[in-house]
Computed example of a mutant assay.
Amino acid sequence: MALGQLELAARVAAGLFVIVAPTLLFLALWHGLQAMQDDALVERVRQRATEQSGSAVSVSSPAVSCPACGAGNRDGVAYCQQCLSRL
């Protein structure tokens, strides 16, 4: 059973579409998300996180130590922030 050239071309085109289309859609989504990124907001969040981590260490020490890894955790948390074991 020989396929006609038109039918073969249609099958190849459909196969290429199925393979290439998801990649192109993902790349377009990624580019769109990067274009929507608010750099000023990201920088403020990064700066606030740096300030909080620096001040939290100097103001008070963690109240609970993890029995598995020894990492310090805030009082009242159920799981270790480092290794996720139950406190």
Rank of each mutant, 00 (worst) to 15 (best):
L87C: 01
A56S: 09
G54I: 02
L3P: 04
G32K: 07
I19W: 12
L29I: 09
S85F: 01
V12P: 05
A28C: 08
L24V: 14
C83L: 03
G32F: 03
Q52F: 10
R11M: 05
A21P: 15
A10E: 09
S58P: 02
G4Y: 09
A28E: 15
R44L: 02
V59R: 07
C69M: 00
S61H: 07
A28N: 12
A10S: 03
E7D: 13
V64K: 02
L16Q: 07
E7M: 10
V20R: 00
S60Y: 10
V57R: 11
V42M: 07
Q82V: 00
S53H: 14
H31L: 12
N73C: 00
R46H: 11
Q37P: 12
G32R: 05
G76T: 09
C69A: 01
S61Y: 11
S60L: 08
A63E: 15
L41E: 14
G4F: 14
S61P: 15
L25R: 04
R46D: 09
P62Q: 04
A71R: 02
A10C: 07
G32E: 08
V64M: 01
A13W: 15
A35K: 07
A28K: 13
Q34K: 13
Q5I: 10
A28T: 04
A78N: 01
L3W: 13
E51G: 09
A40H: 09
S60T: 07
L6E: 15
M36Q: 12
A21L: 11
L27E: 14
V20K: 01
P62Y: 14
A9R: 11
P67E: 07
V18D: 03
Y79H: 09
L25D: 12
P62C: 04
R11P: 01
R74H: 13
S85A: 05
A10T: 05
C66S: 10
A21Y: 15
R74T: 05
A13H: 09
Q52K: 00
S58F: 14
H31K: 03
V64F: 10
M36Y: 13
C69E: 03
V64N: 00
L87R: 02
P67Q: 03
V64W: 05
Q81D: 06
Q81H: 08
Q81I: 06
